[in-house]
């Protein structure tokens, strides 16, 4: 009796088999998930990699956009993303701080939360039309970087708010309690303890936003991005080309475009997003390394 106590039973064996089965299943699902990424990147590099060169990045498109580079579109995307960030980050972070650190749990806060969730669910084409009505026409910014970036900012605001709020909430409540009990005001607590410990998470949200902003087409199409504009914008009231729209244009709107060109544009767009992502991930790891708890 005693000697058999540790021997594997039939039930053990069945359970083990089931467990192995599920494990395999989950691994396959995960692999399936990265498959599209691999295929997309592979195709882009294979078909568009050849066209990428310093010249491609830093010259204007010529011959009805069938030749030449993408410089104005590249610069335009940087403009759009930066201005959108300048608007949405301070606004979104401030709102998140309010919601996480100050707001009481009452009907007002709940309405705000509901609004944020709904804002996140609005399709981008609706944002685009709203941008046209509000910024282009009503505020009179015309089709400009400002109008386009404002539209992008509003569209991505929920992401910033939600992710910032989550990273603020992930700072242990005990830290806040410790501060309050020493007589720290709310702001002192936020400034010295909560924010420094939430920064890496906040950055993640902003990165997410960058990726989304850089790739969006619909919201900028009617508000500030131009089909073809072979010079660089001088300020926020100018129109500009943008990579995403340029990709759409050369892929579908312009005849006689060499095959490699759209793939090349897409590759640059993805490259840009990946580059920004990796910079900020590196920065985040640097910050996390300094974290002291």
């Amino acid at each position: 009796m005693n000697s058999e106590m540790f021997i594997e039973s039939d039930l053990n064996r069945t359970n083990k088999r089931t467990q192995a089965l599920y494990r395999t299943l989950f691994i396959i699902m995960t692999l399936l998930l990265i498959l599209p990424v691999v295929i997309i990147l592979g195709t882009l590099v294979y078909k568009g990699g050849g066209i990428i060169s310093i010249d491609f990045l830093f010259t204007d498109p010529i011959n009805g956009m069938t030749e030449g580079g993408i410089f104005p579109a590249l610069v335009g995307t940087l403009w759009l993303v930066s201005v959108a960030l300048l608007i949405s980050v301070p606004l979104g972070v401030a709102a998140a701080i309010y919601l996480s650190e100050y707001a009481a749990d009452n009907w007002f806060t709940r309405i705000i939360n509901l609004a944020i969730i709904n804002l996140a669910g609005v399709p981008s084409i609706v944002h685009a039309l709203f941008g046209v009505g509000a910024f282009v026409i009503f505020f009179g910014f015309g089709t400009s970087i400002l109008a386009a970036s404002l539209t992008l900012a509003i569209m991505t605001l929920p992401v910033v708010i939600v992710s910032t709020r989550e990273s603020l909430q992930s700072v242990p409540y005990a830290f806040r309690e410790a501060c309050w009990n020493m007589g720290a005001t709310r702001w002192q607590t936020i400034r010295r303890v909560v924010l420094p410990n939430a920064v890496s998470g906040i950055l993640t949200g902003i990165i997410l936003e960058v990726s989304r902003t850089a790739g969006e087409t619909a919201p900028i199409m009617f508000t500030g991005a131009a089909f073809f504009l072979p010079y660089l914008p001088q300020g926020v009231f100018d129109q500009t080309m943008a990579l995403s729209l340029h990709l759409f244009v050369v892929a579908t709107q312009v005849p006689n475009v060499p095959d490699a060109l759209p793939y090349g544009v897409a590759l640059v767009l993805i490259g840009l997003v990946l580059l920004m992502n990796s910079i900020s991930i590196a920065f985040r790891m640097h910050l996390r390394g300094k974290k002291k708890w």
Binding site: P172, A174, F175, A178, C179, N181, M182, P196, K292, W293
Partner: peptide
């Protein structure tokens, strides 16, 4: 001043 059940040193 207040001291809690679980030590809560600040980061």
């Amino acid at each position: 001043g207040m001291v809690f059940q679980r030590p809560n040193p600040l980061p």
